[in-house]
């Protein structure tokens, strides 16, 4: 059983922002619209592999697993939240790295699995936290399943200048389908923080 230390992917991150509550510009450059000039890059780590895993935390096998799982999760994050031409109400291709059944379910949950509820009101959005922590299952020396813990914090700004902070956290469940990693399930939590709004909105997933 291999216990793996963190292996970071990507350089500049807001890793110190464990709460995800940092404000744009804190400790970094503020760009147009008051959003951070530099988006947080995705930081992927393989925390642990249960089973027979001959590699250590720095082995080629572990790095390969890290890249493959990070790419699958990152593909979803990009198309659903980050690499989006805001304002946006369509998020085509957001589930390209999902299994067919999971993609169908994710489309039904698009208020959660994409930035659909805020997207048409934003003019721009920048990730300030983007981490992926992977625990894999490799019973015969090859990883066949994994849990990816995800933490995404997205700073967005509306045309009025009002800012929104969207957090999406939870788990993605990964498996290999025809040799490729795919997301086949999820257990996610979404919260929207609107510090400049009057009153409060309590609708679930409404985004204030």
């Amino acid at each position: 059983m291999a216990v793996l230390a963190a292996a970071a992917l990507g350089g500049c991150t807001d890793d110190s922002d464990s709460s995800g509550d940092s404000q744009p510009g804190e400790g970094g450059t503020v760009g147009a619209l008051g959003l951070p000039a530099e988006p947080a890059e995705q930081r992927t780590q393989v925390r642990k592999v249960w089973g027979r895993w001959p590699g250590d935390d720095d082995s080629a096998r572990t790095r390969s697993l890290q890249r493959a799982t990070g790419r699958v999760v990152g593909g979803w994050i990009d198309r659903a939240f980050v690499a989006v031409d805001y304002p946006a109400s369509e998020f085509d291709g957001a589930f390209a790295t999902f299994t067919r059944g999971a993609a169908a379910q994710a489309r039904r949950d698009s208020w959660l699995t994409t930035n659909q509820t805020l997207g048409d009101r934003l003019v721009d959005a920048v990730p300030v936290k983007r981490t992926v922590s992977v625990i894999a299952f490799a019973p015969k020396g090859s990883a066949v399943g994994a849990t990816a813990q995800v933490a995404l914090v997205l700073q967005g700004v509306a045309e009025s200048g009002q800012r929104r902070k969207l957090s999406v956290t939870g788990e993605l469940h990964l498996t290999r389908v025809d040799g490729r990693w795919r997301i086949f399930g999820y257990d996610l939590q979404r919260s929207v923080h609107a510090p400049e709004l009057r009153g409060s909105s309590g609708s679930s997933g409404g985004g204030g």
């Binding site: 994710a106 498996t175 399930g185 996610l188 979404r190 923080h193 609107a194 909105s201 679930s204």
Partner: peptide, 14 residues
């Protein structure tokens, strides 16, 4: 005034 909405959903498709 801060407003925060929190929702959670679990989906497992296998």
């Amino acid at each position: 005034t801060r407003s925060r909405t929190v929702t959670r959903i679990r989906r497992v498709v296998a």
